[in-house]
Computed example of a mutant assay.
Amino acid sequence: MKRIRRTKVEGAAATYHCMTRVVNGERLFKDREKEVLRKMIWQLADFCGVEVLTYCIMSNHFHVLLRVPEEQNVDDAELLRRYQVLYPKPTPYQSDSIKVLRAELAANSEDAQETRRKLLARMGDISEYMKAVKQRFSVWYNRNHNRYGTLWADRFKSVLVEGKGNPLQTMAAYIDLNPVRAGLVEDPKDYRFCGYAEAVSGVSAAIEGLRRIWGDHDTNPLRAHRLLLFGQGSAASSKGGATIAREEALRVLEQEDGLLPKAAILRCRVRYFTDGAILGSAEFVRSYAAAWQMERQRRHPPKMNRLKGAEWGDLAVIRGLRKAVFS
């Protein structure tokens, strides 16, 4: 897999929306596959030291909203704990390897220093996290389906997201509404393979993700998130803009160049959230434009583009989209 460049946020936590698809878009994942992938998303996040704020697994792709904390020292005890996270039910050989690793780290030999360096290099990085999830799931899937070869498309898409307020909350809602856009459910709480449904069911890690997303905005992050998912009403059956038919929404957006309530537009596929490169307030986008340009060796500085189609607030992206924005 070719390594994805990502705009670095020096000296601060960074938040990314990552999305990857099955090769050729094949719809391979049923409930069993989604459940295994769900567990791996959480498991590898613990190992890599990143935080899953929300996610959604569909039949041929998955999304994950990740917060990468500031760089911090990982001592040997934590390193061993994370290593064992990868093997919750180790084979006898794996148990021996953990004992060897523990002894090496205690002796602080040259081999131990190299092992420590290699393990730490896999932590706190979205490319390493996505690589680990995709590789580990590919091995499981091919083994259990008598299959060979590549499972995933070569690259995953990533968007740097402003890690607070409207940008973060809107991106999270967009991710959780994937099964609604696909027509699988009317309410994402009824789709078990997304972060919002896990939070509603009481999973502490998913609830903590919503707390991160909403911060001090509301004492009840579940309620705040639901209000964004469904507009002013708190139920899927609420009357108003959020229930507008998708075909009508697209007509208003693309043919009439009109505006829709945010809760309605999020039920369309909005390419800003997967292809916009950097998403946040205008100030946030401008502040990382130069780094984005330098990493990609662009001759001309990118333009800041405000989102259209709804009352997005101060939301903007760095990458102008030439094709239809909504679909």
Rank of each mutant, 00 (worst) to 15 (best):
F137Q: 06
A103F: 06
L120Q: 10
L120F: 07
L105M: 09
N108S: 13
S97N: 13
V133W: 05
D125T: 03
P92D: 06
W140C: 06
A112Q: 09
K99G: 04
Y129P: 01
R117F: 12
I98D: 01
I98Y: 05
S97L: 15
K118N: 12
R116P: 01
Y93Q: 14
R102L: 05
R122D: 08
R136Y: 04
A107F: 02
V100H: 11
A112L: 08
A132W: 02
W140V: 06
Y141G: 08
A121H: 11
Y87W: 13
S127K: 00
M123S: 06
P88S: 10
M130Y: 04
D125F: 03
I126D: 09
D96Q: 15
D111M: 11
E110A: 15
A121C: 02
S138P: 00
P92W: 05
I126T: 10
P92I: 06
K89A: 12
R122C: 12
E114A: 13
S138G: 07
Y93A: 15
D125M: 02
A132D: 07
P90A: 01
A132G: 08
Y87Q: 11
M130T: 03
Q94L: 13
D125E: 12
V133Q: 02
P92A: 05
R116N: 08
K99L: 12
A132T: 08
R122P: 00
L86M: 14
R136V: 02
Y87V: 01
A132V: 02
Y141T: 01
R117N: 08
A107M: 12
K118P: 00
Y141M: 09
L105W: 07
L120Y: 10
L105R: 08
A112T: 07
R102C: 10
A121Q: 13
N108R: 13
Y141Q: 07
R116Y: 06
S95L: 11
A103P: 00
S109F: 05
L120M: 11
L119F: 13
D96C: 11
D111P: 00
N108I: 01
I98A: 14
A121P: 00
K118S: 10
S127R: 01
D125L: 04
A107H: 08
D96G: 10
Y129C: 05
V100S: 09
P90E: 03
R116G: 02
V100W: 14
L105C: 06
D96T: 09
R136N: 08
A107D: 14
S138K: 00
F137P: 04
S97Q: 15
S95E: 15
V139D: 12
Y87N: 12
L120I: 08
M123N: 05
Q113P: 00
K118D: 11
S127M: 03
S109V: 02
L105H: 07
L119P: 03
L119S: 03
P88W: 04
T91D: 11
D111Q: 12
P90S: 07
P90R: 05
E110Y: 04
I98P: 01
